[in-house]
C-alpha cells in the first residue's frame, strides 16, 4: 500500500489550536490546487486496565490505543507504545476486549476532515475532537504518496513535498506549524514496506505528542 506521513499541528508557545487555523490550512491545500474528494474519519480509543486493587503496584501497562482506520474498515489496530507492539486484528476484537472486562475503553477521539488529491499525492486534513464534544484538540494532516510503498525510497520526495507545503503555509502567518515525528518502525517489528500498522503507530505517536504539548501548555499556565 502507498506510504504516508502523519503530521500534526504544533501551535507556537502560548497559543492554542482553533478552528480558524483548520479553515486556513484547508484553504491552503486548495490554494496549491488540491482537489477536494470527500470526507474521511478515523477513530482512536484509549484502553485502561481495570484493577481490583488500585494500591497494588500494577505490572500492567497504563494504557494502550485501539484504532479503526478508513483505509482498512474491517480491521482494528492496537498499539502498545511502552512495549513497542502493534497488532492488526478484525473489528470483532473490540467485542472480545469488552467481554474480557480487563481493560475499559475510556476516551475516544475522532480524526475527521476532507481528503484532497494533488497529483501523485493524497492529502487528508482533519480535526481531532473527543467523540462526544466539538472541542478542538488538534489538527492532523496525512500526506500519502501513491506510487511508492517503500519508506526509504520515498523519503526524499516526501521531504521535498513537505518543504513546499510548509512554504505555502508560511505565507499565511499562522501561529504554529506542522511537524512530522517519525516513529522507529523497526522497533515495532515493521519493515520498510508500508502497511496500515505503520499508520496506527504514527497515530499513537501523534497522540503522545498531543498529550505532551497539552501538558506543556497547562504547565506554562500554572
Amino acid at each position: 500500500m502507498p506510504l504516508k506521513w502523519v503530521l500534526q499541528w504544533q501551535p507556537n508557545p502560548g497559543t492554542t489550536v482553533n478552528s480558524q487555523i483548520l479553515a486556513e490550512v484547508s484553504q491552503c491545500v486548495e490554494g496549491i490546487n488540491g482537489v477536494k474528494e470527500g470526507r474521511w474519519k478515523a477513530t482512536l480509543t484509549y484502553y485502561k486496565p481495570i484493577l481490583r486493587d488500585q494500591a497494588m503496584s500494577p505490572e500492567m501497562p497504563r494504557d494502550f490505543i485501539g484504532m479503526s482506520l478508513p483505509e482498512q474498515p474491517s480491521k482494528y489496530y492496537f498499539t502498545l507504545r511502552s512495549h513497542r507492539i502493534v497488532v492488526e486484528s478484525d473489528v470483532s476484537v473490540q467485542n472480545i476486549m469488552e467481554k474480557l472486562q480487563s481493560y475499559k475503553s475510556r476516551v475516544a477521539l475522532i480524526f475527521e476532515g476532507f481528503q484532497y488529491q494533488l497529483g501523485d499525492f493524497q492529502l487528508r486534513v482533519g480535526k481531532v475532537v473527543p467523540s462526544h464534544s466539538e472541542n478542538l484538540r488538534g489538527i492532523v494532516m496525512e500526506v500519502e504518496y501513491l506510487p511508492i510503498s517503500s519508506l526509504e525510497k520515498s523519503r526524499r520526495i516526501m521531504e521535498e513535498f513537505i518543504e513546499i507545503w510548509q512554504e505555502a503555509l508560511s505565507k499565511r502567518s499562522l501561529p504554529g506549524h506542522f511537524i512530522h515525528v517519525e516513529p522507529n518502525f523497526s522497533e515495532f517489528g515493521l519493515s520498510d514496506h508500508y502497511t496500515s500498522q505503520h499508520t496506527a503507530v504514527q497515530y499513537a505517536t501523534v497522540m503522545a505528542q498531543l498529550i505532551a504539548s497539552a501538558q506543556a501548555v497547562s504547565t506554562v499556565r500554572n
Partner: peptide, 21 residues
C-alpha cells in the same frame, strides 16, 4: 454459548502477555 473470534497478526500472543495475561 457466546463465542467471538478475531483474526490477528502474529504478535498477538506477545500483546496479551504484555496486557497482563
Amino acid at each position: 454459548r457466546p463465542m467471538v473470534e478475531s483474526k490477528a497478526s502474529k504478535n498477538v500472543l506477545r500483546f496479551f502477555y504484555a496486557l497482563g495475561y
